[in-house]
Structure formats: C-alpha cells, structure tokens
Design a protein around this nucleic acid. Sequence first.
RNA 1: GACCCCGUAGCUCAGCUGGAUAGAGCAACUGCCUCCUAAGCAGUAGGUCACAGGUUCGAAUCCUGUCGGGGUCGCCA
Length: 582
Amino acid sequence: MKEQIAQLLEKTVEVLKQRGVLPADAAPRIQVDRTKDKAHGDLATNLAMMMAKPARTNPRALAEKIIEHLVPSDLVSRVEIAGPGFINFYLNPEWLAGRIEAIQQDPRCGVAAVAAPQTVVVDYSSPNLAKEMHVGHLRSTIIGDAVARTLEFLGHNVIRQNHVGDWGTQFGMLLAHMEELHKQGGELRMQLADLESFYREAKGRFDASESFAERSRQLVVELQSGDAYCLKLWQEFLDISLNHCHELYRRLNVSLDRSHVMGESAYNDDLPKVIDDLDAAGLLTEDQGAQCVFSDEFMSQDGSLLPMIVQKKGGGFLYATTDLAAIRYRQKVLNAQRVLYFVDIRQSLHFRQLFAVARKAGFVKDDTQLEHMAFGTVMGDDGTPFKTRSGGVAKLADLLDEAETRAYQLVKEKNPDMSDDELQHISRVVGVASVKYADLSKNRSSDYLFSFDNMISFEGNTAPYLLYAYTRVASLFRKAEISEDNAGAKILLTDEYETELAAKIVQFEEVVGRLAEKGCPHILCGYLYDLAGQFSSFYKNCPVLNADDEQIRKSRLALAQVTARVLRRGLSLLGIETLERM
RNA sequence: GACCCCGUAGCUCAGCUGGAUAGAGCAACUGCCUCCUAAGCAGUAGGUCACAGGUUCGAAUCCUGUCGGGGUCGCCA
C-alpha cells in the first residue's frame, strides 16, 4: 500500500509540474510512512514539506494543491492536511477487505514474486570441520538460512554455499591422531563421535610429543601434495565431521544439504592462478617476502597502507587467497548477481578489502552486489562471549538439548495429561524454535545476550508466543469442525479490531521485501509479533464461533485463517515449524 | 596510534530513507476466566535517546568534537 500511494503521488507530482506549481526539474524522493498514531490516518507523506521551498510556497498551501490534483483511487477513503504540512491518508475499509479476500485465495499470502529474479549466492554456516559446531556457528547458520529461504520464496535463483573449513595446518595433527588410533586398532568412528574431545586429544598429543608434532607437519605437506593415503584419511575425517553438521542442520530445520558444501579445499588448484592474475593486473607488491595487495582506500591518517596478504613468504596461501578464488568462482561459474556473506562482524575489514581487491582485479562485474551480512557476538550474562557453566565453548547440540528439556518441563506443566509422545514432539519444536527465534529477532549486526530464561519465557516477542497464537486458530477450526481450506468468505470489517488485523496482514508483502533487501530477519520477527498481538486482541474481543451474525462469523473465521497462514508462512521463511496444539 | 561498530526505561530489545506525543516485552502495580486455550487480554508507572555543539521547518536518526564500551590492524580463519 505504501507503494501504491507513492505511485499516486508520483503521478500527482507530474501534473503539478505541468501546471507550473512545481519546478520542471523537481524529482522528489517520495516517502510514504505508516503513522504511529491513528489520529493521523493510516499512512502519511511529508512531500509538501520537502517541496515547499523549491515550489516557493508554504507547506500547507502546497499540500492543498497536492490533494486537489491527487489522482483518485479506491485505496483511500479520506485525505487530510495535518500539522506543519503532512498529508494523511485513510485507508478505504472496502479496499482493505478486498485485499484480504484476494490474499485468502493466494497461496503466497499476497506476496508477489519479483519481476526481475536475480541469481543470489548465499554463503552461510561455514563451520570449521576440525571441530564440532558450537554456539558461534548459530547466527550465520540460521540467519543465512532465513534470508536464503526468503529470497527463494520471492522467486530469486538462490545458490547456497557452505564454505566449510576443511583445509589448513590443524588437519595435520588430526590425521596424525587418526593414524595412531588406526595403528592401535581402535574403533575410529566411535572416537570421532565426539569431535570436540578428539580435537582436544590431538592437540594434547601435538603439544606433548615432538615426534607427533613432526608427523603432523609432515602429513600436512603430504596432504597438500595430494598423497593418496593422506587424502583417504582426510576424507574419512571430513565425512564424519560433515555428518555431524548435517545432523544438526536437520535438527535445526536448516535447508543446507551436502550438495551445498563447497569447502576451502575446493579452491586449492585455483590459488596459484589467483596470484598470477593479481600480478597480471599489476596489483601485486612484494613486502617482507610476502605477496601483498595495497590500495589507497585502506590508508590510515599517518599514511601507512594496510596490505591484504595473499601469499606468505614461504609460498603458502591464506584465507584471503581462498576468498578471492571463491568470489571469482561465484561470479564466473555461478553467474552471481548478488553475493551475500553471513560472517562475523569482526571480519568486516577483511571483507572490505576482499571486495575492493576483487573489483580491482576484475574478478567480479561492476554491477554485482557484494554484501557482508555481518552479525555480532552471542554474549553470556557476564557480558563476555557465551560459554558453558564450566567455561568451555558451548556445543550447539548441548544448547538445543537444554532448550528442549526446559521446553518439556513447561509444556508438561501446562498440559499434565498430555501423552509423552506429544509432549516430546511439542517440546522439540518449541525448544528449537525458541533458540532460533531469540537469535533471529535481534538486530543482526549487534551483539546479543543469550538467555534461556528470556527465550523460553513464553511471553513477549518469543517463539512460543507466536506458536501459541497459531494454535489458537488451529483450535478454532477444530471446534468449528471445518478444515482451513473451507474458510473462503466475504470479509466484513465491522470494528476496529478486525480493521487493525486486516491492515497488519496486508503489510506482509512489504516486510518480506525489506527482509530480502537488507538481510535482516528481525524485521519479519517484529512484524509477526505485531500480527500475533493484533490477532490476540481480535481473538479476545471479537467472538468468532459465537458471533451473532452468520456473515460475521464467516468473515471472522476467514480473518483468523488468513492470519494463521501468514504466521505459518512467515515462520517457515524463518525456518521455524508450527504446531497444531501446545 | 589508526580504522570500524556501539551507547535508547532498572533489565532485554525495536525505532525504516530525518517527520508529528521515542515504542514493545520482562520486572513492579491495577483490573479481567459461568465467555472459542489466562502460555492470554485491558490498563498504570517508568526516558535529559552518553554529553556538547552544528545542519534543518523538524534530529534518537545526518555532521563535528568529548567521554565511555567493544572490535580490528602484514604472513590464523
């Protein structure tokens, strides 16, 4: 609706230009906002205030001219001038009712597919396979997944890339440890069931034994030179580690599968070529034996330049080299028009350099969008990065276990007679949803405080509140003994609760669009919370099944149905399942 | 030292491209279950938007400076 009103205003601006009210070269950035206060209508524009000066008049006088020449539309029922020169629009309830009727028939909940689909590469999750996934991987994994799902829903060609850490010196000690265990005839799969302790043991051996450390370094060299024995050990390790990851993805309802894995090692053969091409482009400078790219964009005030090191003095490559190879692959092979990196904010300098160098080297086209979708750190109560009670790194799997246990206790408290199977199912969904939603609902770029108490409190802007709102609709339909599909009806907006709910439903499209543009799922979370709140008010104040009038009963049932569908669709874009009862 | 980010109610967080009286939830206090799930609804109270200037008809939002917190900065990723 913002969009439609902006279009009306645009046409009006043209008319006013022809009439000489506005200067012919005026090209105002038309802004339409939702009002905070109902007294100011539903939508407002500041156009008259912006253009008063160029039009050599005062805002209110210009506002009158704008209204006078406003192209008629059935979208608005009333237009008013208010305050210093705002133009307030009141939505036409009949138009609103018509929109809801349309959305009712629309499996996409009123969200049109984009006119110009893009090929979007989404780089997310990207765990280090040497270790087990921990709390630090949570944000990239679920925020990236929500954005990928949303872009896909909008009709973009989404290519997921799980840029796993499957290469590097640490694999030397892991392979050496595997080798020792093999020789001892140990059951390797069992040992690797707990990757975290396997890594600790290997590290322990590395630090304690010089001969083990020597063997580790040797294995790295052999691995890099493509030794068959080393490669076999390495692949065995990766396979087990990847299985761990995908078990977690399944549990988290994350849409990544093995086909999305494109690890660091995949670019190995391309790394020397990257250096050659940087050299050919005249970007390479040798400094203290290392190959660097300098650029005046990364100069501090004292004139010193920040290098991006792409090759170590020993000839080895770095993550910068791999990232350059990856960015080129995404452009040349995947034909990306937009590349999104869901990576910790602490790497923002790295990405600024990476993007700048990639452009200079011609690895990406000028109009390819490169965006570092940075996120902040998950913090504990003490204001430092989140740790377990014992001070160790919190494994993702343990975190989910605890969330599910807490959810189980609460659900059981509320439903003492429920079967254990159902309790298990509900607490599993609620537990995972709570952890995910707590993260998704916070602004991506800032740090946030991890608190089980807050996320499973079942109050406020939490997953349980949204899931509960959804189950209330499901319950209505059970009581009404009709399936949700049969709710098609004429929509009658007879009071403010119905109107408010309808107005909120209609905003879904715009919200999904903003999420896709900014890569910020918290925008959708905030919307769904508002929607659920609006529904709860409606539910409390407007009898649905007990409505006096049959037409109103049908209309309200339909409103409830559309609300539920938007909730379910919205949650599914966030990668969160819904429940029929809880 | 340089660069980047942050500072909003006691706590956790929103606040869009500058817009009208800065919003939610928790905690505190009031009401509401003969009524479709009270995991709910309705309400009260709580603010010098770190501070000081500036731009603007209008600033939490943009600019400059100060203070406070965090992060990053040539061979880890």
